[in-house]
Simulated scan of single mutants.
Amino acid sequence: MMRGMGNMNNMMKQMKKMEKQLAEEQKVMEAKDFTGVSPDEMVKVTFAGKRVMTDMTIDPKAIDPDDPDMLSDLVLAAVNDALGQIDVEGKQTLDKYSNGLPK
């Protein structure tokens, strides 16, 4: 066996182990729920970690027939809040495994 091959094999084993751990953490995250809220919590949405909306609650006070744009803005704010949480958690998980790797 050539010098350095043992190190390469160990490195490959470590990479496979890290890959498996990352896949497990992604499964856990995908099973988690993320709740986004609008200002004044008039609209709440829940997303699964897979970025699929699973629930929405709208406070009746948010439904103004003369101002449908307000409700749209509240829904957008709540959805973006939840998706932002998913992005942050996903990045934190990836960063754990990419720390020290060349960019």
Results as ranks from 00 to 15, higher is better:
65 P>G: 06
70 M>D: 05
8 M>K: 04
81 D>V: 08
21 Q>R: 02
31 A>P: 11
17 K>W: 03
36 G>Q: 01
62 A>H: 03
25 E>P: 04
64 D>L: 07
6 G>Q: 10
96 K>T: 14
44 K>W: 10
29 M>P: 06
58 I>F: 10
63 I>N: 12
34 F>A: 03
58 I>W: 11
87 D>L: 03
78 A>G: 05
99 N>S: 15
82 A>H: 06
56 M>L: 13
55 D>V: 12
23 A>S: 10
89 E>V: 14
95 D>S: 14
69 D>E: 13
43 V>R: 06
35 T>S: 12
40 D>F: 00
67 D>W: 05
51 R>C: 06
102 P>G: 14
103 K>E: 01
33 D>C: 12
21 Q>P: 02
51 R>H: 06
64 D>H: 03
98 S>T: 15
79 V>F: 01
55 D>Y: 13
23 A>P: 07
88 V>E: 15
59 D>Y: 12
23 A>W: 04
88 V>G: 06
19 E>R: 11
35 T>C: 09
6 G>T: 08
65 P>K: 14
16 K>F: 01
85 Q>G: 12
68 P>C: 03
100 G>R: 04
61 K>Y: 09
30 E>L: 02
30 E>R: 06
28 V>C: 03
43 V>F: 02
71 L>M: 08
54 T>Q: 15
81 D>T: 10
47 F>S: 02
11 M>S: 10
25 E>M: 14
103 K>I: 12
51 R>Y: 00
98 S>D: 08
7 N>P: 03
17 K>M: 11
32 K>M: 13
15 M>D: 09
44 K>E: 15
1 M>R: 01
61 K>I: 08
22 L>V: 05
65 P>F: 12
50 K>Q: 00
75 V>K: 07
43 V>D: 05
28 V>R: 09
63 I>L: 06
55 D>G: 15
30 E>W: 08
55 D>T: 12
77 A>Y: 00
41 E>Y: 06
14 Q>P: 04
14 Q>C: 09
30 E>Y: 09
23 A>T: 00
39 P>C: 04
70 M>T: 07
59 D>H: 13
94 L>T: 13
56 M>C: 14
14 Q>H: 02
